[in-house]
């Protein structure tokens, strides 16, 4: 690990992330009357991992198997022309699709809101959900679009010059949310 990352401040450690996801799972159950007709769709890559974790908790608490999937938003982004074409993530929809369901989009960090806007467009092309909600592990503010999260793991006041990085066991070997100052990078 680089020095910069060592100096960076971990705002959430493994147990904090664990508790935040547990609370989000409970809130989803509460707000959707026992996760009735809920579909969890994560935004790759870490949002998809988080969606699976939340589904695991819902199964553990209530014994319900909530359909989980992933929806890649790369082709729908509004900043595609600002960088070279990037690799695509995986879209995996549950076999019954999203029509008439309550879709809970799951992402790791909510920032400008542009990724979520892209996700709403992508969702439009795969079906017509009854309602769409948003869950995020970290809300760091600085919205550029009228979008808000329904379920938030942690509200994290940041400055625009900072960077928020989420590490998850499945993809990165450890659980942590790290705040990196611009000049540390």
């Amino acid at each position: 690990m680089s020095d910069a990352q060592n100096q960076a401040r971990a705002v959430l450690e493994g147990p904090d992330i664990h508790r935040a996801l547990t609370r989000i799972a409970h809130e989803i159950l509460e707000r959707t009357r026992g996760a009735e007709s809920v579909v969890l769709l994560g935004i790759p890559t870490r949002g998809a991992t988080l969606a699976h974790r939340i589904a695991g908790r819902i199964a553990q608490f209530e014994g319900i198997k909530v359909p989980v999937g992933a929806i890649d938003v790369t082709m729908y982004r509004d900043d595609l022309r600002l960088r070279p074409a990037r690799p695509l993530g995986r879209t995996e929809l549950p076999p019954d699709g999203v029509d008439g369901r309550t879709v809970v989009l799951v992402d790791d960090v909510l920032y400008s809101g542009r990724t979520v806007r892209a996700a709403l467009d992508a969702l439009n092309d795969v079906g017509r959900p009854r309602a769409v909600q948003l869950a995020t592990l970290v809300d760091r503010g600085h919205r550029e679009l009228p979008i808000r999260a329904d379920y938030v793991g942690k509200n994290l006041p940041t400055s625009k010059s900072e960077k928020v990085k989420v590490f998850l066991e499945e993809t990165d070997g450890r659980d942590a949310v790290v705040l990196i100052k611009e000049d540390d990078r």
Binding site: M75, L80, R81, L82, R83, P84, A85, R86
Partner: peptide, 8 residues
Amino acid sequence: LLGGSEPA
């Protein structure tokens, strides 16, 4: 080739 600011 065309999706980004420059071809990948």
